Simulated assay, not measured.
Amino acid sequence: MAVDFESEIKALRATVRSIAEVSDLEKLEAQITDLETKASAPDLWDDVEAAQQVTSQLSRAKAEHDRVTSMEARVEDLEALVELGQEESDAETMAEAEKELASLHKAVSELEVRTLLNGEYDERDAVVTIRAGAGGVDAADFAEMLMRMYLRWAERQGYPTNVLDTSYAEEAGLKSATFEVKAPYAYGTLAVEAGTHRLVRISPFDNQGRRQTSFAAVEVIPLIESTDSIDIPESDLKIDVFRSSGPGGQSVNTTDSAVRMTHLPTGTVVSMQNEKSQIQNRAAALRVMQSRLLLLKKQEEEAAKKEMAGDIKASWGDQMRSYVLHPYQMVKDLRTEYEVGSTGAVLDGEIDAFLEAGIRWKRGQERAAE
């Protein structure tokens, strides 16, 4: 069946136009001009932290602007390619146009999803923590599988990551792990992964080859910024130091460089051991602690709003995704009903479709609640 390029291009152009309106390119251009003025100031680097913030904001604003304008240019180029192929009756050119049309549909869909990320902290970097749940050694192994899945996803996107803490289980896998994903909208994108993940498979740790169900919890919080007003009195913190350890409990550090920080009023605990010194681990722990308390504060505010608004049934269930490796192969999101049979690809980081479905679902729930 021949592709109706005219209607396809018309639809793409309309979608890109609506994305540009939501993105408010004029406001973005004014922001870029203002940031470029600040970035060119001769005394910019007198305050290193402020300078880094300006350059980071400028880089993000330019990337956001280019993302939309380049899409408009790609639609124009596709239209020119189609006209050329039709005038010359060139099958090879038309095949190239079909390929570009499919690529554009995917890129525009991803860009459209980005416009849904308009929450207060959505554009922040993300801090992801994975904890093994019920299921013994299989759960610890599953926690490590999930950590690899997210790190592979970030690698595929070209996003830098930084592993802050890893607590290894005795036999295999991880008790818990915490890492940063440093990219624009990393928090907004990955926030839909928060919840309980479930694995069903023949356990490689069971000598009788029985099927095992295990669980792991994923927590996603936005990374704190220097402009956020989260002050933690020293008296509210209990700080313990200990020696870092590697897999199987083997010592990897001969000094007490690892830090366990407890926020006494809330009982929130953060452990850090992957930096080289106690000072670095303490700074990293404080940053993550501030991020968790910031999110906790927001959740309390949201809960108060919901209580005032009455009972809203659109809520996130704890168990949000199942990974079934036996007796059949399937990964299914229990909120969006999105599922695929390629379990290996998903566990190797191909989770974009799940993220997109989750973001659309979450925004739909928020609209329904409003």
Rank of each mutant, 00 (worst) to 15 (best):
2 A>Q: 08
4 D>I: 05
9 I>D: 04
12 L>T: 01
17 R>D: 14
25 L>W: 08
26 E>M: 01
27 K>H: 04
28 L>P: 08
30 A>H: 01
39 A>L: 12
40 S>V: 12
45 W>E: 11
53 Q>M: 10
70 S>N: 15
70 S>M: 14
71 M>I: 11
73 A>T: 14
76 E>K: 06
79 E>F: 00
81 L>S: 13
104 L>A: 10
106 K>F: 14
107 A>Y: 03
109 S>H: 11
111 L>P: 02
114 R>M: 03
116 L>D: 00
121 Y>S: 06
134 A>Y: 04
140 A>G: 06
150 Y>L: 03
151 L>P: 00
151 L>D: 08
153 W>M: 02
154 A>V: 01
158 G>W: 09
164 L>V: 07
180 E>C: 11
193 E>H: 02
200 V>R: 03
210 R>S: 15
211 R>Q: 11
212 Q>W: 08
215 F>C: 04
218 V>S: 01
226 S>H: 13
236 D>H: 14
239 I>F: 04
247 P>C: 09
257 S>E: 05
259 V>T: 03
265 P>Y: 00
267 G>Q: 02
271 S>L: 13
285 A>Q: 03
286 L>E: 06
292 R>G: 02
304 A>S: 12
315 S>H: 09
317 G>E: 15
318 D>Y: 05
325 L>I: 04
327 P>N: 12
329 Q>F: 10
336 T>Y: 00
338 Y>D: 07
343 T>M: 01
344 G>H: 13
346 V>H: 10
348 D>T: 13
350 E>M: 14
356 E>Y: 05
356 E>I: 12
360 R>Y: 00
366 E>I: 12
368 A>G: 04
